[in-house]
């Protein structure tokens, strides 16, 4: 039982990251009816922006020393004598990195939001009123542009970034089994769920959110009711890009920085289809289910199956519920 809980928690931690990635795809779809195939590459840009602001800029000669590593006297004193992997040492390492982590996150969110706005203004808005298919094709083309641009700007060099939270190990006994958890993964999960919850609350309770929902229902009617549909488009892309930046930063802390980060978007697309393209709740449930299924399959059947079993489950759900778990059925009248 203890092992079951261990792998279930591991799965929930992965699932929360999937959910954070998926929220961007759902936001853009809800507002514009466009399935953004390039979302994974927006996330990759977010990761590279985090790398730029948390690693590259603090490493410049002119950058203040405290930005690269904050080392007040009291911390140096506390650090002395600690063993290499002591929990307190991990927390102190994180505190030393805190200025650049905050700088990195802020920089990544702002720059990625601007990138989202740029894409919306230059590529999506001119196509407003055209077929949605054309806009989807633009997002497919965007994959090549974004991946090529990232290689040009940052090269393909693999790099590593600081953890967003202290990576202190947590150990406790449950049902006679020692449970191991990474502190950084727990905080990542909490951040992902908070952002997810915030977006859902925003869409449900704020004026801007109502505008997104109204536009999702019917663009023409929303227009006629005085809602600025172009503004809704912009907001959706900014929201997707900004949340994507946080997702990218978290992914980068788990996997390092490389152009292959863009590929994550494709596996999450299947999760979004399972949950329902226009349902935040459905996507959250789907993301958590796939995360847990992956971890359970890894535990019981090994890694050879871990990439297959969860996606077979996705297929089964789509066969029986083509619009996903909580997706809205669309009735087409001819």
């Amino acid at each position: 039982m203890g092992q079951f809980v261990q792998f279930a928690i591991n799965g929930l931690m992965s699932g929360a990251i999937y959910a954070l990635i998926a929220v961007g795809i759902v936001s853009v779809y809800k507002a514009t009816k466009v399935v953004n195939f390039a979302h994974g590459y927006l996330i990759m840009f977010g990761a590279y922006f985090y790398f730029t602001f948390a690693v590259v800029i603090p490493g410049f000669e002119g950058a203040p020393a405290w930005l690269a590593s904050w080392q007040p006297a009291w911390m140096v004193e506390m650090r002395a004598g600690l063993s290499m992997f002591s929990p307190l040492g991990a927390v102190l390492d994180w505190v030393a990195n805190l200025p650049r982590i905050v700088f990195g996150l802020l920089g990544a969110v702002v720059c990625n939001a601007l990138l989202g706005l740029l894409i919306e203004r230059s590529l999506m808005r001119p196509l407003m009123g055209q077929s949605v298919f054309a806009m989807i094709m633009v997002t497919v083309g965007l994959i090549s542009i974004l991946s090529g641009a990232a290689s040009l700007i940052w090269t393909a060099d693999a790099a590593f970034v600081p953890h967003i939270a202290p990576n202190t190990p947590l150990r406790f006994e449950l049902f006679g089994t020692m449970i191991f958890l990474f502190g950084a993964d727990i905080v990542n999960m909490v951040i992902a769920l908070l952002i997810f919850g915030g977006i859902v609350a925003m869409v449900k309770f704020t004026k801007g959110g109502v505008a997104i929902r109204a536009t999702a229902e019917d663009q023409s009617t929303a227009y006629s009711m005085g809602i600025s549909v172009p503004k809704v488009f912009s907001r959706a892309w900014i929201l997707a890009s900004a949340t994507g930046a946080v997702a990218g930063a978290i992914l980068a802390t788990r996997n390092g920085i490389s152009p292959s980060l863009g590929l994550f978007g494709f596996s999450v697309l299947a999760i979004v289809l399972m949950g329902g393209l226009d349902s935040y709740v459905g996507v959250l449930i789907a993301a958590m289910s796939v995360g847990i299924l992956e971890a359970m399959t890894q535990w019981k059947m090994g890694g050879e199956w871990a990439e297959i079993v969860p996606y077979v489950a996705v297929l089964v759900v789509i066969i029986f519920r083509p619009h996903g778990l909580f997706g809205q059925k669309e009735v087409e009248r001819i």
Partner: peptide
Amino acid sequence: EATKPQGADVPTHVTK
């Protein structure tokens, strides 16, 4: 233990 070539679920593998 087989893992994904990129983006592996590190906590699960380390646990095993």
